[in-house]
Amino acid sequence: MQRDEADPKGLIRESYVIEGITPGECRSVFMDWALSLPVDLPVPVALRALIAHYAVAEPDHPMSGVLHEGLTLPDHPRRRGGRAARVPGG
């Protein structure tokens, strides 16, 4: 996969040239990037292409960490609430 296919709007590319960008700002850019991807493009495939292009060259950049975090699977959702949470003494 080409870099331009993985980052069609150039959001990740731009984050690497912003001087002093913070990890929080990188996460915000990452969310915008993820929401702008075509539906048929698998996110892990795009992330690996971006990591190979950017994160290898700049491993200490905050966006590099965010890209790597994007490959980790989220924890399984835990059930919250239920009858015990709604009814006193439940």
Rank of each mutant, 00 (worst) to 15 (best):
residue 2 Q to N: 14
residue 2 Q to R: 15
residue 2 Q to M: 06
residue 3 R to P: 00
residue 3 R to L: 13
residue 3 R to H: 04
residue 3 R to I: 14
residue 3 R to A: 11
residue 5 E to R: 15
residue 5 E to M: 14
residue 5 E to L: 15
residue 7 D to M: 04
residue 9 K to N: 10
residue 10 G to E: 08
residue 11 L to W: 06
residue 12 I to F: 05
residue 12 I to D: 05
residue 14 E to V: 04
residue 16 Y to R: 01
residue 16 Y to I: 08
residue 16 Y to D: 05
residue 18 I to R: 13
residue 18 I to Y: 04
residue 18 I to Q: 14
residue 19 E to V: 10
residue 22 T to D: 08
residue 23 P to S: 01
residue 24 G to V: 10
residue 24 G to I: 07
residue 24 G to F: 07
residue 24 G to L: 12
residue 28 S to D: 03
residue 29 V to D: 01
residue 29 V to M: 02
residue 29 V to N: 02
residue 29 V to T: 07
residue 30 F to W: 09
residue 31 M to C: 04
residue 32 D to T: 08
residue 32 D to W: 05
residue 33 W to G: 01
residue 33 W to F: 08
residue 34 A to L: 11
residue 35 L to S: 11
residue 35 L to N: 13
residue 37 L to D: 06
residue 38 P to E: 15
residue 39 V to H: 13
residue 41 L to V: 11
residue 41 L to K: 11
residue 41 L to T: 14
residue 42 P to C: 11
residue 43 V to L: 15
residue 43 V to Q: 08
residue 44 P to C: 10
residue 44 P to D: 02
residue 44 P to E: 05
residue 44 P to Q: 12
residue 45 V to H: 09
residue 45 V to C: 04
residue 47 L to D: 00
residue 48 R to C: 14
residue 48 R to F: 12
residue 49 A to M: 09
residue 49 A to D: 06
residue 49 A to C: 10
residue 51 I to T: 11
residue 52 A to T: 03
residue 54 Y to C: 00
residue 56 V to K: 09
residue 56 V to S: 07
residue 56 V to P: 00
residue 61 H to R: 03
residue 62 P to F: 05
residue 64 S to Y: 03
residue 64 S to M: 05
residue 65 G to Y: 03
residue 66 V to A: 02
residue 66 V to D: 00
residue 67 L to W: 01
residue 68 H to C: 07
residue 69 E to Q: 14
residue 71 L to W: 04
residue 72 T to K: 13
residue 72 T to Y: 10
residue 72 T to A: 12
residue 72 T to C: 07
residue 73 L to H: 08
residue 73 L to I: 05
residue 73 L to F: 08
residue 74 P to T: 02
residue 75 D to G: 09
residue 75 D to W: 10
residue 76 H to I: 12
residue 76 H to A: 14
residue 78 R to M: 14
residue 79 R to N: 01
residue 79 R to V: 13
residue 81 G to Y: 12
residue 83 R to S: 03
residue 85 A to C: 11
residue 85 A to I: 15
residue 85 A to H: 13
residue 85 A to N: 12
residue 86 R to D: 13
residue 87 V to S: 02
residue 88 P to E: 08
residue 88 P to A: 10
residue 88 P to W: 07
residue 88 P to C: 01
residue 89 G to A: 12
residue 90 G to Q: 09
